[in-house]
Amino acid sequence: MNLEAIESEIEANVPGCRLVLIANPSPSGQHSLLLDAGHAMAVAIYLRDAASLRFDFCSNVTGIDWPAKELSEKVKVKKLVDGVEQEVEEVRKTTTPGSLEVVYHLFSIEKKLGPLVLRMSTGDRDANVHLPSLTPVWRSAELQEREIFDLFGVVFDGHPDLRRLLMWDEFQDHPMRRDYVDPDDYEYEPTAHDEVLRRANQHLSEGGGR
């Protein structure tokens, strides 16, 4: 059963849900389905319970951080230059909003299907980081969603026990985010190189040494 068939089957059976098929251009061709957060729960329940699909096993949940990116594209614009209309190239800069993404890998043990890759994306990386938890559907997602909450900062609504998993409760950062800066404890780096060397030099020049 290919992904298009699953997509159309979900859309036919879960009213109102919008799915986006994200193609994977690599040879592995592991295409994925982007769910909208509002219908994610209904889609998950359908995937688990539908007689033809029976995705009964969630093997993996992971997160991706997409930081805000500045795109520059050259656009040809018609402009009046010295009274004559000319085509001028302009560079337009647009900033794509960053987002956090959660990826679920599903298998059907019963129907021997899978992996089915589901994605959910947050609105941004600061305030709109809420996504529905799929732990009520697949219990195996519980610890992995806690890990994503801990390391990426995605808040899973409906999770039965949403606490930090690896770091301590007082910790405020999200280390797997790309803009995370680890604490400045570069006072002793006997074999520094590359990034470590840069941080060690920075530490010493800021008087963090002695």
């Binding site: 007082e170 910790f171 405020q172 950062d173 604490p183 006072e187 002793y188 040494g209």
Partner: peptide, 17 residues
């Protein structure tokens, strides 16, 4: 347990870089 790291990051009476 601090907000970003252990506090203090080392014990200066025991360890000096």
């Amino acid at each position: 347990f601090g907000a970003h790291d252990l506090e203090p990051a080392n014990n200066p009476n025991v360890w000096k870089a």
